[in-house]
Design a protein around this nucleic acid. Structure first.
Lengths: 186, 186
DNA sequence: GGAACATGGCTTCCATGGAAGACAATATAG
DNA sequence: CTATATTGTCTTCCATGGAAGCCATGTTCC
């Protein structure tokens, strides 16, 4: 870290209070008995996550995909050739219930992006596979998606991004064991 | 700051790759042409946000509230006595559409936590007000909620939390102007 | 071999929230 | 003062995903 232009904090001192700061101020007035400092982190984290999701979905939409569909196609694509997975695996990888996966696959199948066929060894099982069109689509969409993530992250300096990643990775590691198998989304 | 990088004060070295790291590794194998570094930040941010939401909702549920209901009650409570707001204001404060607010108020009204009455000066308008029971409930629930947030944030040192807040605040400030109208109507 | 239990995928039902439009009331233009 | 536009709330319809339970298949253990 170098002459560190004051990370981003000292950027230019005064920033008008943001939405979260205003909420905190209101609570301090109404409930002075509580320490609402954690909202400064948790509230903003949620806000950022919501904004990012919104921006990300805008790109999915260009390919006529919802977030769920994109996740499934991506999971199949990064599985590597021949781009197949069992629905249960997809559920595990995308962290939603198997019921949700069934519906996502229904939609993708209808769109001709994946196929479903019975599994070879286990006759309860099924195999979901990317079609040529699906492969082609997710490759284009994912390229675009990553470009989009770069754009969104460009609001941070590389040093800030690295710091943020370190902090989030650590927090996540200490949070996960506490709340293992909820039903998260991604 | 600093005796240099070393994450959280050199806590301990090797951590096994987490979910996000594994996804990144798969993409690097399948799409070596792309730089998926941003996923390290964005993916983990979403994961943390999801986990936090899950933990937070667990507390709301103790009071028989969903996240949406909690948000509305909280917005009314921090408005200060007499704890009233127009539906449109609630929509702006909780950042959802007015349609969503209507439904949240329906549920809260059915539960006896808020009342709806016509506005005095503008006859299109309505006034949503906390009932005694609503006031009492949100005060207890919010106290519990803040205790919960403290618990979740306890996984970070005060210095880490402060750093995180600074980074998120800055990012948010630079992201917000770019994406102003996500869902709400403001 | 067969009975009990486990598993994988799917179906049904429910809850939540967005989008768009219906309506009534208010503001504004001419 | 009317005609038009805008506003504030609510209604309808739709999309997504969770929970729980169904069914066919697999596994285990006696």
């Amino acid at each position: 870290m170098e002459q560190h232009t004051e990370p981003s904090a000292g950027e230019s001192a005064e920033r008008p209070p943001d939405h979260v700061a205003r909420i905190q101020a209101a609570w301090r007035r109404e409930r002075p008995d509580l320490d609402v400092a954690p909202q400064g982190v948790i509230g903003r984290l949620h806000r950022v996550a919501t904004l990012l999701t919104h921006e990300l979905c805008a790109v999915y939409a260009r390919y006529d995909l919802g977030e769920g569909e994109f996740d499934v196609l991506a999971a199949l694509r990064r599985a590597g050739a021949p781009y197949e997975r069992a629905p249960g695996e997809l559920a595990a990888h995308t962290m939603v219930t198997t019921g949700a996966v069934t519906k996502r696959i229904d939609r993708l199948e209808r769109a001709g992006l994946v196929t479903r066929r019975p599994a070879a060894e286990d006759r309860r099982g099924r195999v979901v596979a990317l079609t040529g069109a699906g492969r082609e689509l997710i490759d284009r969409a994912f390229t675009d998606h990553i470009r989009n993530e770069h754009r969104l992250l460009a609001a941070l300096t590389p040093a800030e991004a690295a710091q943020l990643e370190t902090l989030l990775t650590g927090w996540l590691a200490r949070l996960e064991p506490a709340a293992p198998p909820p039903p998260p989304s991604r």
